[in-house]
Simulated scan of single mutants.
Amino acid sequence: MIIKPDITKFSDEKVLTELIISVNEFRLVHFYLKTGQKVNLHASKSHVLTTVLVGKGKFFIDNEENFEILNTGQSIYYKPQQPHGFEALEDMIVQAIISPNPQQKLSL
């Protein structure tokens, strides 16, 4: 299976998500954010590895005051139950690998 982000899949109204793979071991999701859009702080029972596929963003660690700026090709790992979220500083596509699969969709 070849996995490629759809660089045309952005919405001016809200963050878009695309479920790529969902198996018991993990879930692979792409997030499409226009500049200024945000995925609010939340926590998961799973491990979460996020990678910026396109663009640049602010990635929150535990709270919105603690963050790292990530660019294309950079990743950040969140432990289970660790609050996290992100905000696009420019149009951005983020890939998240969530393991084990939480079996529920993130509400944005």
Rank of each mutant, 00 (worst) to 15 (best):
V48A: 11
H30W: 11
F59V: 02
E87L: 14
F86Q: 02
P100H: 09
L89C: 04
H30K: 09
I20H: 04
Y77S: 15
F60S: 06
G57S: 09
H42D: 05
K4Q: 10
H84Q: 13
Q37G: 10
D62G: 03
V29W: 01
E87M: 15
Y78A: 07
F60T: 05
N71R: 09
F26K: 10
I2V: 12
G57K: 05
L106G: 04
V54I: 15
E87W: 01
I20M: 15
T72S: 12
D62E: 14
F67V: 04
D62N: 15
N71G: 11
P100T: 09
V15W: 01
I76E: 04
F10R: 12
V48M: 00
E25P: 02
E90P: 03
V48K: 02
V23C: 10
T51S: 07
Q74R: 08
I3A: 06
T50K: 09
F31D: 02
Q103W: 03
Q82R: 06
T72Q: 15
A43G: 05
L19Q: 13
E13M: 05
L108Q: 10
E18S: 13
Q37I: 11
T17G: 11
G57W: 02
Q104K: 13
I20S: 06
K14R: 14
F26N: 08
F86P: 00
N71T: 11
K105H: 08
M92K: 06
N63R: 09
P5K: 12
Q103K: 15
I21P: 00
N71D: 12
V48N: 04
A88H: 11
F60N: 07
G36L: 10
F31T: 09
Q82L: 07
E87Y: 01
L33N: 03
